[in-house]
Design a protein around this nucleic acid. Structure first.
Lengths: 127, 127
DNA sequence: TAAAGCACTTACCTTTTGGAAACTGGTTAC
DNA sequence: GTAACCAGTTTCCAAAAGGTAAGTGCTTTA
């Protein structure tokens, strides 16, 4: 048995049944991936962080996104407390989307993914 | 996620506009997500890292995975240079899957996702 | 000689995800 | 008064991901 030392050692012996221990890695990782994976979540987060705060403004700033998908993704991001939706009682009503302070906790995750992804592209497409 | 063979094709051309730097974040992140997202990649990596090196051994160690999916995922992981497939010229042939040293570069990414996912679950499920 | 193990592959479904286009019900600008 | 803008929703479709079950060609075990 060769180990590259990858990953948290879940504690169980390598020959034992360790899938329950591994769940301690897999479950949180999948929770995190759920939040940021998909085609549009990151583009939306970035668009909003740059000051595109109105629905149509976000839609225009992200090429090829449709209003249906944008609507759904904004709801997802809202339930994950990454985006706040504020309705102003004006005529007509104005809706503003902003990043929550909590959204900034994602930064280290995104940076880790970005850096690994960058070197991986070089590795796979031959340097 | 749309892929062009190995890596993600992010659609829009990198012109000189303000979206260029967005793509510098989004593209690498999507490349990275492509490698580790999906239902089975992480469980497989963990199983192999813990000494499950034969096809049937890996299959048995991951509850509910099917041979079709395992076969496909192992191929993906191999083209991403995370897993090495070694065929021994025995009777009958033996096939061994091991993690490459490169696979250990994923560790910081996985740890970042795991930690964020852990606190996120607490945040979302109240507490 | 039959059953079982190994390393897969194949054909066929179902579920999930994302896309196109039209449409709603309001408001405002020309 | 009609055209356009806003913030979406609805219906229908296509592609991708994943699941089920059976089969392949080999070898070893009983």
């Amino acid at each position: 048995m060769k180990s590259t030392g990858l990953l948290v050692d879940c504690g169980a012996p390598p020959t034992g049944d360790s899938h329950t221990d591994c769940h301690k890695v897999i479950m949180p990782v999948r929770d995190a991936l759920d939040v940021i994976s998909g085609k549009w979540k990151l583009p939306i987060i970035i668009a909003v962080s740059r000051g595109h705060n109105r629905f149509r403004d976000i839609e225009r700033s992200i090429p090829k996104i449709t209003s249906k998908v944008l609507s759904k993704e904004l709801k997802d991001l809202e339930t994950h407390k990454l985006i706040r939706r504020t309705v102003y009682d004006t005529q007509p009503v104005q809706v503003e989307y902003t990043l929550t302070p909590y959204a900034s906790t994602l930064e280290s995750v995104i940076v880790a993914l970005q850096q690994w992804g960058l070197q991986h592209r070089k590795k796979i497409l031959g340097k």
